[in-house]
């Protein structure tokens, strides 16, 4: 029994990190109908900024959270405003190709500057024991941050004018324009928020996972699965999708061996696509 409580705890902590990784991706896909291939590289960029600040000047990652968030928001906002907005109403394949190309540039620039050497923020905060369950402190902090950030985004989406405007644009672009919402600006802000969430996920990840450009594709793939499982375009969807995926991978890793853990995640995704195309908590019309 002890091993199961440990495996459930592992799964939940991993799941919260997955949610944090996917929420920005889900927002951009849901609102802009843009599959943002840059997402994985944004996370790693956030991670590198954190690592360099920590390694070069000894700045604690927590301090970097708002800084990285602001920088990535600016980057995302500018990219959408100057580049992606030009083709944002084109079929999804066009924007996918565009962000794919942009990703190749960002990915290779990062590999060129930073090299692909895996780096790690060595906080090593230790672990706490709750009976038979061992909980690594940095993952606990990561989990808490992931939950707080995701809930903060949820609050912004529900409570602020910008958030309501984003939701309005997502529901009906033409109607939103008729109501006086400047949709192009909302697009840029949404993409900025997507990049911001990727950046802060990078900060959280920097002390948990090694940072290297090698994993950008892995992160992007996880974001896809989380979105499909949870449901597109909604903050609770990313949270539910992340937690479910974390638990499934953790249990499958124990039952069938780690080799099958990722497979189990994809089987779950297929099953959801077949039975609930909107995802577990997705909104109709966003499948």
């Amino acid at each position: 029994m002890a091993i199961y409580s440990q495996i459930l705890a592992n799964g939940l902590m991993l799941g919260a990190l997955y949610a944090c990784l996917a929420v920005g991706f889900s927002l951009v896909w849901g609102v802009l109908n843009v599959i943002n291939m840059l997402h994985g590289s944004f996370i790693i960029l956030g991670g590198y900024l954190t690592w360099f600040a920590w390694h070069g000047w000894g700045i604690h990652p927590i301090v970097m959270l708002p800084v990285v968030g602001a920088l990535l928001f600016a980057l995302g906002f500018a990219l959408q405003k100057l580049v992606i907005n030009r083709v944002v109403s084109a079929p999804v394949l066009t924007t996918l190709t565009l962000t794919f190309g942009l990703d190749m540039i960002l990915y290779n620039v990062m590999t060129y500057w930073f090299t692909a050497t895996p780096r790690r923020v060595q906080l090593d905060l230790g672990a706490v024991s709750l009976g038979p369950v061992t909980l690594p402190v940095d993952r606990l902090v990561g989990t808490a941050l992931a939950l707080v950030l995701t809930l903060a985004l949820y609050a912004v989406m529900r409570g602020s004018n910008i958030g309501r405007a984003i939701v309005a644009v997502r529901m009906d672009r033409s109607a939103a324009e008729l109501m006086g919402i400047r949709t192009e600006r909302i697009y840029a802000i949404t993409f900025g928020i997507g990049a911001l969430m990727a950046g802060v996920a990078g900060v959280v990840f920097a002390s948990v996972f090694p940072i290297t450009t090698n994993v950008t594709g892995t992160y992007l793939g996880k974001a896809f699965v989380v979105c499909v499982v949870g449901g597109l375009g909604s903050v609770p969807g990313a949270l539910v999708g992340g937690l479910v995926l974390g638990l499934v991978e953790s249990l499958a890793g124990h039952w069938f061996g780690p080799q099958q853990a990722i497979t189990a995640g994809f089987v779950l995704m297929l099953a959801i696509l077949l039975t609930r195309p909107t995802g577990l908590v997705g909104v109709r019309g966003y499948e």
Partner: peptide
Amino acid sequence: KELYPVGTMDHAAALSS
């Protein structure tokens, strides 16, 4: 004795076993 696939982000399950 187990293998983990390329693209594994987490070893917690294997290490717990």
